[in-house]
Nucleic acid binder design. Structure first.
Lengths: 213, 213
DNA sequence: CTGGTGGTAGACAGATCTGTCTACTATGAG
DNA sequence: CTCATAGTAGACAGATCTGTCTACCACCAG
């Protein structure tokens, strides 16, 4: 837990032409990460060897291992990337549903519907990664952290929506979400995300309805 | 789709002493399958090599390949076994809740709670297997078939319970169930199965309540 | 001109994994 | 006794996978 990069953002040469390599985000590294994003998700992590990623990224083996000393480092970077994309889609779907937190809790399920519809949809990258890793490993921990972050966000929304038991509501909604993510991979049928949204609405309404006056 | 075993059940020698090998279920085969059940679930399918299964089963390599010509054949047999066990637990939990189908729909979630509590729980074997296989392969198909069978069973119960839209209710409940199975592996916290059951009750009541008179 | 940085190309080592094959043993039925 | 069946023990081939290492190239800052 040392300071990794003192004044990491204070790049002395702030991308002169805009072209080359600002420290961490070299073109080669991005190519590797993009390839990993595509292949790991499509085929599974263990099913994709570093040799394939290297070939499809058009980089040299030494370049690969310079950026990612071990395959697992790339896997974690891949999960970081998926986290950014998926969390962004969830929040965008929620905000698209309006400013009412209760509506947002229902609206976020539109991200699920869209995900399941996508060509090559193969379930939740995190659940899949967890299935291929052992508890306690960095990869598994990254998955747990992602799910905890989503749960915390939904819990905050539930509180804003005035749920009587925001913890229970958030847990139920993420359960529906995870179920939809997992089922969507096994059943192309669009019924699943639809049912998830309908159920989410029912649960949100039940949890926020005024019992008396 | 040919007839695999004409009069398969008509074993000419119906287990004289009860001891030896009634055709398909030799002791060696059972040992292999038991070992696979344990190791595949605990570590993942790709993470377990046939050599390890052979060593832990105390069989010879030739014996292994006689019973399971390829590793994937063992994987499918493993999923068949899991299907039997898990489906049995689901139905037992449902029946333990009484004779009212609505109660059974809620009670089946007790199987989820029990599963998540078990030492070494690592999620749903089928979701995990799907994460490690490609759509269209026998292993993946077996997973899809299992999920379809559970959905069909829950749908029948929903109909018996008098749900207005048994399809939607069944879909929602299996979503909660799958979500609980997936989350349980990422979050030892027993809140998840509890929330699943509470939500299930709410959804069942909402779906079967008499809207007017 | 020099030296550091980031990259290319690819051989290589060592482990591991699936599946085959040979040779031998035990047992029970006819 | 004979023969088929089920099993044991383990070498072996061939593929694949991670990670290392050598050698070379291009560019830019000082």
């Amino acid at each position: 837990m040392s300071v990794i990069s003192p004044s990491a953002s204070a790049s002395t040469s702030p991308s002169p032409g805009g072209a080359p390599a600002p420290a961490r985000a070299s073109a080669a590294r991005e190519r590797i990460l993009d390839t990993a994003f595509r292949l790991f998700y499509a085929k599974g992590i263990r099913a994709v060897g570093v040799d394939l990623i290297i070939a499809e990224s058009d980089v040299a083996k030494a370049t690969f291992y310079k950026h990612f000393p071990a395959k697992d480092d790339l896997v974690v970077a891949y999960l970081d990337k998926v986290d950014g994309v998926w969390t962004g889609q969830l929040k965008a779907a929620a905000e698209a549903a309006g400013s009412d937190p209760a509506d947002q809790l229902v609206g976020l399920f539109d991200a699920l519907t869209a995900a399941c519809r996508r060509e090559g949809y193969r379930g939740c990258a995190f659940i899949n990664a967890a299935a291929e890793s052992l508890p306690g490993t960095p990869v598994h921990d990254r998955t747990v952290a992602h799910k905890a972050a989503v749960l915390a966000w939904v819990r905050d929304l539930s509180e804003l929506a005035g749920a009587r038991t925001p913890d229970v509501l958030a847990r139920s909604l993420t359960l529906l979400l995870d179920g939809g993510l997992a089922s969507g991979a096994l059943d192309a049928n669009p019924e699943a995300p639809e049912a998830a949204k309908v159920s989410a609405r029912a649960l949100v309404e039940a949890a926020t309805a005024d019992p008396a006056g």
